Every structure is written in structure tokens, then in C-alpha cells.
Simulated assay, not measured.
Amino acid sequence: MQKFAFLGLAIFFTLVLCLSINAAQPQPPLWQVYQQSLKTAKYVDLTHTITPNIPVWSGFGTSKFEPTINPKTLQPYNYKKDGFEATHYDLSTDQLGTQLDPPAHWNPEYPAIDELPATFAVRPLVVIPIQDKVAQDPNYHLTVKDIQAWERRHGKILEGSVVFVRSDWSKEWPNPELATRTKFPGVSLDALKFLHLQRHILFHGHEPLDTDSTPTLEGEAWLLHNGYTQAEGVANLDRVPETGALVTIGYPKFKGGLGGYARYIAICPPNWSYGVSVGQIPESPLQKADKSLHWNKQLGVRVR
């Protein structure tokens, strides 16, 4: 009996010791950031969905989606017969939809998309609004004065930030006619130089598919010939705050890629009006839809 009593006491004190150690052990700092800030934040997608018919420069041609074909049977894979389906993408360019342009797009001496550093992953997000001026002049371009006005309201732009320019140009997306317009909102060369040489941002982003509407694309030329990246085709900037948010940056890692299909997610404060927080919708497992995906021949994509 004494042996069992001693064994019981030993187990009891071992459990108490383990619990004490665990209670005294603080969470790693980054996990605390997740629990205290990121978990309750509001997440807003700033990315267009890629389809074969979204706006794209005519010089790139059209893209096409098709069901993946089994090379042995020459028939599309089928949920019922094969247990899965897959998609074949005939993409005319890596400059499609919401993008991250590496400098190698214009200058082969600088990094391609697969050579960008992992430190691009998350940054402070600045949103500078020019939509009111664009409403008066569809060809309006961000100026240094616009940037300075933002700084008077919110303080100096943090070094290493991502700066997105809100023009509301994307409100008409996915109208293919957008890509044919010669007048559209942009970012002036002086503004780009100020952001990079004076504020030392990581990169800027804009809603249209080009940086500026000058005949030589002078802003884009300066950026990419000098080793800077940029975001294009950004969406939903009316749903994020001008200051106080973060942005996550994701893109596929194509070897030698000269453009990047990008996914930008804004991480906004918990009290922000838009977005969704962790736990608000089913995540693991994800929720089943009321309607199943099926191939729509007319649209050339799967729909519900």
C-alpha cells in the first residue's frame, strides 16, 4: 500500500510541476502577435479573380481555361469516374489580373519573380486616395502634393511600407474595355521618385494595368529599370483604411517569371467596418456550398 501511495504522490507532484512549468512558460512573441492582433483583425481581399475574359492588353492576346484531359483516354477527368477533376490553363501572359511586377519584366539584369526575397511577405499598408480628383479628371496621376497631404493627416510614411493608390478605376472590373482606354489614373514619375528615394517604400500599387498613361510609360520604365517592383490591378481599396493596416503578399514562384499573379490581403484593425476575422466563417473543414461546381462552356470556367 505504501508503494502505491508513494507512486500516487509522485504522479501528482509530477503533474503539478508540469502544469506549473506550462503556466509559467509564455507563448513565443510571434504567437502572441497572432493571438492578440492577427486573430481578431479584419481581412480584406485586394485581388481580382482571374478568368479568361478579364481586361488585358491586346498585345498579350487571350487566355483559355479547359478541363484537364487524361492523355491516355483523351477525355476530361471526371468526379464520378476518376474521383477528381483538374483544370488546364492556357494563359497568354504572366501579366494578367492582379499582379506583382518584378524588375526583370523590363530589365533582365534585375530579379525575376522567383528571385524576390521572402521578406516581401507582409508589410505596413498605406492607401493614398485620389478617387475624388479622378472623378473630375479620368487621367489624373498621383502627385507629390497628394502624398504630402496624406502625411499631414497621418504622419510620415514608414520605410519599407507598401503604398497603394486608390482611384476607384477597378469599380468597372471586369469590363474588358478597361484595357483599351488611353486615359486612366496613374502615378506621376515625381511621386514615384519621392516614394522610393525619399520615403524608401518597398513598392507602390495601383488599380489600372499600367503605372501611368504617358506615351513611354515613363514611371514604369523608371521603376523597373532601377530595380523596383510594383503592384498592378489592385482591387477593393475603398474597403481598407488609409493607415493602420498590414498587407500580405503572395504569388506563384515561376522560374524566370517576368510577372506575378499576385494575391494581396489587407489585415485591418478589429473594429474596421469591412472584412472577416478568423473564426467568423468555417475554415477547417471548409463549408460545403449549396451548389456543386460544374463546367460552363460559354464562360469557359467552372461555376456553381
Score class of each variant (00 low, 15 high):
residue 77 Y to C: 11
residue 109 E to W: 07
residue 198 Q to D: 15
residue 119 T to S: 13
residue 203 F to S: 07
residue 133 K to C: 06
residue 247 V to D: 10
residue 176 P to H: 03
residue 39 K to E: 08
residue 291 K to Y: 02
residue 116 L to A: 13
residue 263 R to N: 14
residue 281 I to T: 11
residue 142 L to Q: 03
residue 258 L to T: 15
residue 65 F to S: 09
residue 130 I to F: 02
residue 62 T to P: 10
residue 201 I to G: 10
residue 78 N to P: 02
residue 220 E to L: 02
residue 2 Q to S: 09
residue 282 P to L: 03
residue 198 Q to I: 08
residue 55 P to H: 12
residue 289 A to R: 05
residue 106 W to Y: 15
residue 225 H to A: 08
residue 60 F to A: 14
residue 260 G to T: 02
residue 76 P to Q: 10
residue 222 W to L: 11
residue 253 K to A: 06
residue 114 D to I: 11
residue 164 F to G: 00
residue 275 G to C: 08
residue 152 R to I: 13
residue 268 C to T: 08
residue 213 S to C: 01
residue 103 P to V: 08
residue 187 V to N: 14
residue 260 G to N: 04
residue 84 F to L: 08
residue 263 R to V: 12
residue 129 P to F: 06
residue 116 L to M: 15
residue 133 K to T: 05
residue 197 L to R: 01
residue 250 G to F: 00
residue 161 S to Q: 03
residue 297 K to N: 12
residue 46 L to S: 15
residue 160 G to C: 00
residue 168 D to N: 11
residue 129 P to D: 15
residue 271 N to G: 00
residue 158 L to R: 04
residue 45 D to C: 05
residue 110 Y to P: 06
residue 115 E to H: 10
residue 10 A to H: 01
residue 131 Q to C: 14
residue 75 Q to D: 00
residue 27 Q to S: 13
residue 273 S to D: 07
residue 143 T to Q: 08
residue 179 A to Q: 14
residue 218 E to S: 10
residue 224 L to P: 00
residue 111 P to R: 05
residue 58 S to M: 08
residue 38 L to I: 05
residue 200 H to E: 12
residue 30 L to N: 10
residue 123 R to V: 06
residue 14 T to R: 05
residue 161 S to W: 03
residue 84 F to W: 09
residue 118 A to T: 12
residue 122 V to A: 04
residue 294 H to N: 15
residue 44 V to D: 06
residue 174 P to H: 14
residue 184 F to H: 12
residue 280 Q to S: 04
residue 62 T to L: 14
residue 45 D to I: 06
residue 262 A to G: 06
residue 133 K to R: 07
residue 152 R to G: 13
residue 55 P to S: 14
residue 113 I to Y: 11
